[in-house]
Design a protein around this nucleic acid. Sequence first.
DNA 1: AATATTAGTGCAATCGATTACATCTTTTTT
DNA 2: AAAAAAGATGTAATCGATTGCACTAATATT
Lengths: 342, 342
Amino acid sequence: MASKKATIHDIAKELNITASTVSRALNNNPRISEATKKAVLGMAKDLNYQPNNLAAALRKGKSQLIGIIVPTINRSFFSSVIRGVEEVANKLNYRVIVSQSNEDVDNEIATLNALLNARVDGVLVSIGKNTDRFEHYKDLMERGIPLVLFDRTTNEVGTSQVVIDDYLGGYLATEHLIKQGCKKIVHFTNLKQVNIYKERYRGYLEALRDNDIPFDESLVYQSDMQLVDGRNCTEQLLASHKKFDAIFSASDYAAVGALQILKENGVKVPEDVALVGFSNEPFTSFTDPSLTTVSQFPIEMGQAAAESFFEILEAKKKKFIPQKTVLQPELIIRDSSLKSGK
Amino acid sequence: MASKKATIHDIAKELNITASTVSRALNNNPRISEATKKAVLGMAKDLNYQPNNLAAALRKGKSQLIGIIVPTINRSFFSSVIRGVEEVANKLNYRVIVSQSNEDVDNEIATLNALLNARVDGVLVSIGKNTDRFEHYKDLMERGIPLVLFDRTTNEVGTSQVVIDDYLGGYLATEHLIKQGCKKIVHFTNLKQVNIYKERYRGYLEALRDNDIPFDESLVYQSDMQLVDGRNCTEQLLASHKKFDAIFSASDYAAVGALQILKENGVKVPEDVALVGFSNEPFTSFTDPSLTTVSQFPIEMGQAAAESFFEILEAKKKKFIPQKTVLQPELIIRDSSLKSGK
DNA sequence: AATATTAGTGCAATCGATTACATCTTTTTT
DNA sequence: AAAAAAGATGTAATCGATTGCACTAATATT
């Protein structure tokens, strides 16, 4: 039974036809008679034929593979995006190769090259936090390899992007806090290359302005936005003895860090300090109090990114104008910010 | 600049040598002179040569790709396993293709075939919860394609497996509850094909026996073990008016569901009912109270699975005896089970 | 009935890298 | 100095599927 893998040549030999006819039959080419197609399909099944995509890919110059680069895969947001990409890609008979950059530029470049050597038909990337060089992406563009940036994007590379309206997210979060009566709203952010935090910050500023709340720069804390950073910033904040009645953290992780320190210091959330995070990480509904946050619809983002990718792929021959897809975020109001509700 | 991609033939032409020499030089073949190697490497860089792995894969019959099938990628446990696999695989110059079965057998088979068509060199799989057919995996074995099962495994297929000692995990969790003084310990489980829950259940039973606590079958609840199932089971449990002082849920999700219902009904955790979950999902440290659970070391599991895979690959020529790697779980004690501590 | 179409297949080159075998130099051995 | 060995490179087939072009036979057109 376990003879070597069958090829189209084996099928051809059995049926006394040529491999080209078999190939056409398998691809449902209209120039092949129904009878032959039936025979080929039957024999393919009999011989347990499995097409060798490598060979086809080599010949056609298309591997049916998409590369994805994310900073880390085991973060709910990113793995959900990947899930979304996969759903769309698989339907179109594409497979997804996943790679992690670990927030390191050199790693990002190395991993990108590895994907290219594997001959992926294109790449979807969420840029590392510390990435400050973009030549490798510009190269891609020049070589005509489809590239879509999502979430952590940059405008330095003229390609399609999929983001949520981070500005709006920041605005909604801040506005919500203001409506809860907060006036001294601390903001945790990270104003590096990547756009997302800048945008959330912009939303924060705008909401303050629209509501005539004076902006106090000393209430803005910059960090790496991990849980530990949230802890550190909050400790500094408390130590500074500044007055504040809310924290809008542009990351859920930092928000949880803040929550921990606040609780440890007997500061009541939301009574003393209202708290809002960003991303709707799964754990945010399980904290005590549950964390108000902004949903980024990661699965939808993945789907949109994949669709964007296939648009580039299809438009390939003609000139293609990069699209920027902006998804609407949604404020998820939970207990950590509800001063009035309780 | 953006001429067509350079091949070894282009390099050969430039240097007035043949492609075979270039190929050997690039592969650091000892039969090629140092001078030629240097020249080839230099020209490769000049021409911005990127090897076409597809062509090499076709010729060598090895794609340097590993397929992974998980029920769903956006679950911390699975994405962390994938992370572990990737770390090991990338070091050995392999790439990882990720696919999801969505807990559906047919999907699992389809996705497996897709991976095989992409000519992966082997497959790592965590079996879907409802999978009750294993022919597709047996086929793989017969065809000599390396297969490693992890976490959700079965003994029906004679291949290498990587699991944690679920029995021990179940035992540790139950024993811990007993030490906290609990005597009527409810167990949430799912006794289907897949081994893991059976093993945890066995640990539960054994711990009871070793501590002379009578086993009460009516305290065992079976479900799909999602959050909602945990809620349902707990509601039933409360409605039944059975006496119980602890719940050991073989899933963190169901445990959180239980926690929610208990709190909603004014049952205090851990005072009235101690609670232990399983998996150490990230959210377990953020619940109120924080959830005692069992860590499965998913990244380590991924690394072990990858190593197991490469062992099979290397031993390919000789006969290979499937290995079962058993990782030790660790009980993470948090507040939800600490009656004494507080 | 002669010519033009159309349907259905075959031929052979091709994608890019690898590799068994052959060939040609040099160098070493005796 | 002739024979043997080692060193360096070339030749050509190969992996499996695809596809432009050619070809035959059957059908349609005038």
